[in-house]
Nucleic acid binder design. Structure first.
Lengths: 391, 391
DNA sequence: AGCGTTAACTCAACTTTCTTGAGTGTTCAA
DNA sequence: TTGAACACTCAAGAAAGTTGAGTTAACGCT
């Protein structure tokens, strides 16, 4: 019974400065552009301290002046904003058949997105492909490697040898060794590894509908169904990094218990439609099927909405989030349809009159959601004050 | 769509010191007794800094010298330990018919526990009773009020006006205003308010089977069934403070969906037994019923274990905790029986070979669990470095 | 139009806290 | 016996923050 204390760092001047820098960046990012006094009030620091820090950040090229704003009386505010080319993040999504990569700038704008097929799903093939993609990305975009703040990697979970192993994770060979470390060595960059749902959630928080939210859940439609949980602005990872494996829990559809994933995922709709003699292979076909109001697809959506309603009840009552976001590799229209049809449980702590957000929202969808989310992991890190958190 | 940035504090010398003090206390608490060099290594501070901080803490009466330990070569280690009477915490559990209070010292030892019936469940009656209990507690134990670090309050959730309101929370009048503020004013102390499950979880972490665990879940058998979630050493509260309301989710028993609470709670066993013509009014009766191997009770336990298995699957896959603890106002033997009978889901991220703790454990049980948990909230605060977290 | 108030920001002096490096004392092992 | 290892202290120095006085610009009242 060895209980290891999670290492936590003490505060010294150097770490305090780094913490405060991130605090200032975060405050500026949150409002888009801000002046010194404003930031000082938000952080509990003196204006002078903020001033010094801003001057540092200007020197490092992370901030730009953003004109003055005359706000009522007093000296007009000299505003500062994040400098988009002040840094870059590399996002990687590893799937069994291909690797998706994205280069985004400091404000989250995608500079490049790429797709590269994999000859096989072997470890070294993946590492080589990712490395090659990084080089090409940097060359084409003319971004110095030094300007890269890190790489975010999205891999199918769960991580490690668990009771779900073999059922889903179609990437062999990653259960031994720490994937983050392996990628960090291969790319020579700080690396953050998450599953697709968590990454998508962070993307939504950085630049999507979850901007400014600190507590929300994200249901990600990928191959299966994943749950990204953000608590207090941080991804909830669980003790072994596998929190949010919602796909295999039992929910009720028409009074019968089914695995949530078998009722809601992309694989599930394909299987269902195939059973009805309708073959779909990609999202576009699914979308056109929906636009013709295909009865079988609508039936499936109804089932899925029922399953989601059960899941929503669980998520809301267990996490009490500000909102639950639906997104991922599923066409917008289908997501909207499901959201409209999902019954919002009355017996839920989320059923309260003083809500600021709808209980169910649609997030960004599309093929690159998770890849951009991978990059968002890096940005999130850059804007999160981290004294007291050892790495 | 006003997205308010969660206030976070910048680091300045004063706050750094306070952060570091708490870090040192936490490190010492974790191992029981420690020397300067050891703490310095754990915190990333210099020995000199730790030395200065320890000398401060000795002056404040929070630490005591604890003899020297000769550990291999070198100068023997001068060890320090938490001084039990260095501070006290007041714990309060408010129930509809009575108020329970406890005074515990800095290491968590209960000094006094009391029960005081309530004439009615009105707000002012409760406040008056609690205040009076505090005064008596202090007088009898001869603890200065100045030595009190705060009060923890356990109240039935959910907090605020939610979809579960009226079903459970039998304390009228608390849905308006912030309970923490109300108590803080009445007691003139820093106050932390939580539900019973969260408080019990913290108690378990401070001095129970969850010592040293940073990620675990606690299923609390109270009137109903509550879930306390600890993530990264912190209570997971949710956006509105109502996370962990697990009682009302649907689970499967014998293929039928039922509300978890209706299958597992103390009220549920009483109702079930009453239906079989067996009347029980308190835990002792329940216990003696169990010791006679009452068939109806065993039937109920079987049902409950099934429901718990469903719940366990959800908790494990959503949180990926180090362990799930069962505790609360239910006799030990019954808890043990349920733990033994609860099937551990195979398809779970928690089903992994490299576990350090069992998937299901029994925590402290008994009438005062939540009350002592309330006090533990205060201790937890005292041992948690909190730069960057505004109040 | 004039003038006092308000507010953002800078400058320079000061304070707090941490780190560094040299020095002391104790224990173990060769 | 001697040297290495280790905990701890002392004194000097460095880093980062705060404070308070001073400057500048806009607003609004007379």
């Amino acid at each position: 019974m060895v209980s290891t204390l999670k290492p936590q760092l003490g505060a010294n001047p150097e770490r305090a400065r780094s913490h405060n820098k991130q605090l200032v960046l975060r405050a500026i990012r949150h409002v888009g552009a801000a002046g010194r006094a404003e930031i000082a009030r938000a952080s509990g620091l003196s204006t002078q301290a903020v001033s010094n820090i801003i001057s540092d950040l200007l020197g490092e090229g992370l901030l730009v002046e953003q004109g003055v704003r005359s706000a009522g009386r007093g000296l007009p505010v000299q505003q500062y904003a994040i400098k988009p080319d002040g840094g870059y993040a590399f996002g990687v999504e590893v799937r069994p058949t291909a690797v998706f990569t994205a280069l985004v700038d400091l404000v989250g704008t995608p500079i490049q997105t790429r797709r590269s097929p994999l000859r096989n799903a072997g470890k070294s093939t993946i590492l080589d492909t990712v490395s090659a993609q990084l080089d090409i990305c940097l060359k084409e975009s003319r971004v110095r490697k030094g300007a890269l703040m890190g790489a975010g990697i999205v891999m199918p979970g769960p991580f490690g040898d668990t009771g779900l192993t073999g059922t889903e994770s179609e990437l062999p060979g990653w259960n031994t060794g720490d994937p983050a470390e392996i990628f960090a060595n291969a790319l020579d960059l700080p690396v953050f590894v998450e599953n697709d749902a968590n990454a998508a959630a962070m993307a939504e928080r950085m630049n999507g509908v979850a901007r400014g939210l600190d507590d929300f859940a994200y249901l990600y439609f990928g191959q299966g169904l994943g749950l990204g949980l953000v608590q207090n602005g941080q991804i909830l990872q669980g003790a072994f990094g596998n929190a949010g494996e919602i796909g295999h829990i039992q929910v009720l559809v028409d009074g019968h218990a089914v695995e949530l994933e078998s009722a809601t995922s992309r694989l599930s709709v394909q299987a269902y439609l195939a059973g009805q003699g309708v073959s779909v292979t990609d999202m576009d076909e699914l979308n056109s099927l929906y636009s013709t109001a295909n009865r079988h697809l609508l039936d499936w959506l109804n089932h899925a909405a029922q399953a989601l309603s059960s899941a929503l009840s669980i998520i809301e009552n267990l996490f009490d989030p500000q909102t639950v976001i639906l997104g991922g590799a599923m066409p917008d229209d289908l997501l909207d349809h499901m959201i409209a049809r999902t019954a919002l449980p009355a017996r839920s702590v989320s059923n309260r009159p003083d809500r600021t957000h709808p209980r169910l929202m649609r997030g960004t969808s599309g093929r690159m959601t998770a890849t951009l989310g991978a990059a968002a992991l890096v940005l999130h890190q850059a804007f999160t004050p981290t004294i007291a958190e050892a790495r």
